[in-house]
Design a protein around this nucleic acid. Structure first.
Lengths: 217, 217, 217, 217
DNA sequence: AATGAATGAGCCTTCATTCAT
DNA sequence: GATGAATGAAGGCTCATTCAT
C-alpha cells in the first residue's frame, strides 16, 4: 500500500468510482465485474488483483465512499451554544434532510444504503457503528431535553425514531410515493419547508408523549 | 372436472407458495426456478407451463398473495358508527400495525414488498392502485377531521405521511434497528403498545400542525 | 381407418394441412408440435395420437401431399400420337416447368422437397421411386430418340440430367438468383419463354453430344 | 506477443474448424455449441468469448473458410493468352467442377453453402457479392463470345445459367441422384469426363441458341 | 503489476413426449 | 377419442473466477 505507481492507484480509484455507480444502478447481483471493468477501462482480472473478489470490491466501495462523505459533511446541525432544545431539533432535522435529499451524499451511495437496509452484506454493521448510532443518540438527547423529566426513556426512544422515520420516509417509500404522485423533495426550498413541517409535527408529538397516560382504549 | 383436484391444482398452488418464500428470501434475481421447483417437488418446465416464465410466476405470486391477504384482513380498522376521529386514528394505526407486524400479511410477502419498493418490477403499480392509495386516502380523511379546518391540505398530507412513516419504519429500517439493538415489534402486546405511542405522538403532532404558523424562519 | 367420426378426420386433416405449411416455413427442426397444434386448434397430444410422433406427422404430410399433387397433375407433357421426339421434348420441358413454377405443386410442398434434397428424412426415397425415376426415364427415352443411335447411353444420361438441371436450377439456386437480381419465372409467359430457351439449348446440346468425339484436350 | 501462439490461437482456430464440420453435418439449428466445444476440446464459454454467440461463430466460420478457399484456388480456369472462347469455356467448366467436386473447397463448406441456399442466414449475401457474381459475369463473357453478335443478351444469360446449372446439379440434387444410383463425380477422371460432356453439350447449346428464331410457337 | 484467454458451474427457457383422466 | 398437466433432457448463454504469461 506504500509504493503503488501512479497508474495503479488510478486504476484502483477508477474501479472504485465506477463500481459505486454500477452497484447503485444495478444492485450487487445485477452488477457484473465485466461491466465495471469495461467502464473503468480496466482488465477483468484487475478486480481480483486489487480487491480479491467481487465481494471485496463491494466492501471497498462502501468503505471509501463513507470515508469521503464523512469527511465532507457534518453529521448534525450546528447551533449556537445557548440554543434551546427546540432550536436544536430544528437544526438537526434540517441538516439531516439536507444530507439525504440535498446531495450531501451522492445519489448512488443513497441507493446502495437502501439496498443494504434489507439485503445486508456486512458493510452495514460498520456503518451503523460509526454513523447511525451516534447520530441517533444525539437526537435522543435532544428529544429528552424537549420532553423533560416526565417523558419516560422508552417513549423518548420512540419519539426519536418517529423523527427519523419522517425524515427517511421519502427515501424509503420513494417508489410508492412516485406512483402516488408525491415526488421526493429536492430543491432547497422544498427541503426547508419539509424540515419545518416535520419539526413542528414532532415538537408537538414529543410534548404530547410526555405526562399522564390517560389515552387508553 | 370434479375430482382431479388433488394433484392438478396442487402443483400450481405449491409453486406459488414456495416461490413466494424463495423470492422473499433471495430476491427476484437471486431466486432460481430450479430451486423453486425443487422445493415444490415439481418439474422445472412446470413453471413455464403454468406461468409462462419466471416473470409470470413472480407476478402471479404477488397477485394471488394479495388477493388472499385482502380477503382475510380489512385494510383499515373498523370502529363504531359514532366514533370520534381520534378513535378512528387509533383503530387505523392498530389495524395497520397488526397487518404488517402481526402476521396479517405473511412475512415473505412483506419482504417482497420491501424489495419492490426500490427495485420495482412493475407489479408495484397495481399494488399502489389497489391497496396503498385507498388506504392512504382513508387516513388522510381522518387526519383532516382531527386537524379541523385550520389544517391546510398540504399539511394534512404531510401529517398522514408522518403517521405512515412511523408505522412502516420498523419494517424499512429493520436491518439497522436490529444492529442497534431495537428489534421490531412482534407480540400482540408490543404491537398494542407501539400503536398507542404512535397514536399519541401523531395526535399531538396533527393538532400542533394546524392553527397559526408562528414557527417560521 | 374405416370408422373415424367426422371430427376425427377433420382434426387429422387440419393437422396435415397446417403442418405442411409450418414445416415448409420453418423446416423440420424449426417447426414445433405445439405451434402446429395451436394453429390447427388441436391438442398437443393429438399429434401423438394420430401420427405417433413428430416424425410420423412429417412423413404423413409428405405422403398425403404427394398423393394429392399426383392425382391432380400429369407428370409429363402429353403430345399427339405422331409427335416427333423434338416436340415431345418441348412438351416435357413445358409441363415440367409448369408443375414446379406454375403452382402445379403448392409452394410449401416445393420448399419441403428442397429441404429433403439434402436433409433426407426417409420420405425422399418413396418420392424418388414413385415420381422422380419414372419421370426421368421418360425423359431419357426422348433424349435417346433425339440423339439417335450415335448417342451413347452414357451421354444420353448426362443429356437428360442436363435438361433437368436447367429446369430445376431456378428452384435450387433461388436464393442466389434473387440476390443477383434474377427472379424465378412465375407468370405463364415467363414460363413459356423459359421452356423455349431450355428446349432450344438442349436440342442443340443433345445433337452436339452424339457423333464423333474429336473435341479432346 | 510473439510466442504465446501455441494455445491462444489454437482454441479459436480449432473451434472454427470443428464448427465448420458440425454446421455442415447438422445444419445451423441442429448443431449445438456444446457438441462443437466438446469436439474441439474447448469450454462452452469459449465460444461466447471468441465469437460472441452461436451466430457470430457461424459467420466467422464462413468468412474464414472462404478467405482460405479463395486464397488457395483460382475462381476460374486459366488459359493461354491466345485461347479461343471455346477453350475458355472448357477451362472454366473444368476449374468449376474441380472446385466443387474435387476438394478444391472442403466438403463441409459445400454443404454449408447448400444450406445457405434456401435457409439464408445473411452470410449468403456477402458470398454472392464476392464470389458468385464475379464468377458468373466471367462466364457470361465467354458465352457471349462463343455465341457471337447474333446471340441476344437475354439468351446469353440463360445459356450461362444453363452451364452453371449443369455444373452444380450433382451437388444440388445429390440426395436424389444417390437414390437413383448415379453417384456424384469424385475422382479426377470422372470430373474430367463430366467437364467434357458439359462443355460439348453447352457449346452446341449456345450455338443453337443464337441465330434465327424459327423454333417459335 | 497487469493482461487476455480459458474455465465450469449455473441460469432461464424450450421441446417432444407421456401420463392420468 | 381427446385433453390438460407433467416430465426430463437439452439448448444457448452469462458469470465470477483463475491460469499462463
Amino acid at each position: 500500500m506504500s509504493e503503488h505507481a501512479t497508474q495503479d492507484l488510478d486504476t484502483r480509484q477508477r474501479l472504485l468510482e465506477v463500481a459505486g455507480a454500477v452497484f447503485a444502478e444495478l444492485g450487487y447481483r445485477g452488477a457484473t465485474v465485466r461491466d465495471i471493468c469495461q467502464r473503468a477501462e480496466a482488465n477483468v482480472a484487475s478486480i481480483h488483483y486489487h480487491f480479491g473478489d467481487k465481494d471485496g470490491l463491494y466492501r471497498a466501495v462502501l468503505q471509501s465512499a463513507f470515508e469521503a462523505a464523512e469527511a465532507r459533511h457534518p453529521r448534525t446541525g450546528s447551533v449556537d451554544a445557548g440554543a434551546s432544545a427546540e432550536e436544536e431539533l430544528q437544526a438537526f432535522v434540517l441538516a439531516f434532510l439536507r444530507r439525504i435529499y440535498g446531495g450531501g451524499v451522492p445519489t448512488w451511495l443513497m441507493r446502495i444504503m437502501s439496498r443494504e437496509m434489507f439485503e445486508p452484506t456486512g458493510a452495514l454493521e460498520h456503518l451503523v457503528r460509526t454513523v447511525h448510532r451516534p447520530t441517533f443518540e444525539h437526537l435522543r438527547g435532544i428529544v429528552s431535553r424537549i420532553g423533560g423529566p416526565s417523558l419516560r426513556d422508552e417513549d423518548a426512544l420512540r419519539c426519536a425514531q418517529a423523527v427519523i422515520a419522517q425524515c427517511v420516509f421519502y427515501k424509503h417509500a420513494q417508489a410508492v410515493m412516485k406512483l402516488m404522485g408525491h415526488s421526493e423533495p429536492s430543491t432547497p426550498a422544498e427541503i426547508d419547508q419539509l424540515a419545518q413541517q416535520i419539526t413542528r409535527f414532532s415538537l408537538a408529538g414529543i410534548r404530547g408523549s410526555s405526562g399522564s397516560k390517560e389515552l387508553r382504549r
